[in-house]
Amino acid sequence: MKRKGKGHDHGHGPSQRQLRAAELVRHALVDVITREDLRDPDLKGVSVTIGEVRASPDLKHMTAFVSALGPGDPRIIANALTRSAGFLRGRLARAIDLKFTPELHFQPDVSYDEARHIDELLASPEVARDLKHEDED
């Protein structure tokens, strides 16, 4: 059986190494954001949650998907954290044991909004009526 080249992704999901490193970075970022006083005005009084971190195959870049616990626009939070990325990377370097401290990228996590929208659609009278007809068949 032929082995894939190192770091190549031929349509498969992330490797175990990527998943472990990303989870390590996610936990460390949560700790740093919780403990540090981030001076960006868009982060004042906002509880930030990091739902997922995805690592590049070489682990040199990681993308964190962020949102607010409670009210808050995930796009504003992602932009504020992007402005603080250098500071966060410096703190991250002290908190994790990886060969390289990854470059950090932040994206809004809209998965919660999408799930809520799907729940609302499923609860709508039209869909409930259609589902009731399928149950009768």
Rank of each mutant, 00 (worst) to 15 (best):
85 A>P: 03
83 R>M: 10
77 I>S: 07
63 T>N: 04
101 T>R: 02
70 G>A: 04
83 R>Q: 12
84 S>V: 02
63 T>W: 00
98 L>C: 09
71 P>F: 00
91 R>F: 13
70 G>V: 04
101 T>W: 05
97 D>M: 12
60 K>N: 07
72 G>T: 01
95 A>E: 12
62 M>Y: 08
78 A>D: 07
72 G>L: 02
101 T>S: 00
82 T>G: 10
94 R>F: 09
68 A>I: 01
76 I>S: 13
80 A>N: 07
75 R>V: 08
87 F>H: 09
97 D>R: 15
94 R>K: 07
84 S>C: 15
83 R>I: 06
67 S>I: 07
91 R>M: 12
76 I>V: 14
79 N>V: 09
80 A>C: 06
91 R>Y: 12
102 P>G: 02
72 G>M: 03
89 R>Q: 05
79 N>K: 15
70 G>N: 05
101 T>L: 07
60 K>A: 13
94 R>H: 13
98 L>W: 06
99 K>D: 13
70 G>Q: 07
96 I>M: 06
96 I>Q: 13
67 S>Y: 04
68 A>M: 00
89 R>Y: 08
78 A>R: 03
80 A>R: 00
103 E>F: 08
74 P>V: 00
101 T>D: 02
67 S>L: 00
70 G>M: 01
68 A>H: 04
91 R>L: 15
87 F>V: 01
83 R>G: 14
99 K>Q: 09
101 T>Y: 04
78 A>Y: 05
92 L>R: 05
62 M>E: 12
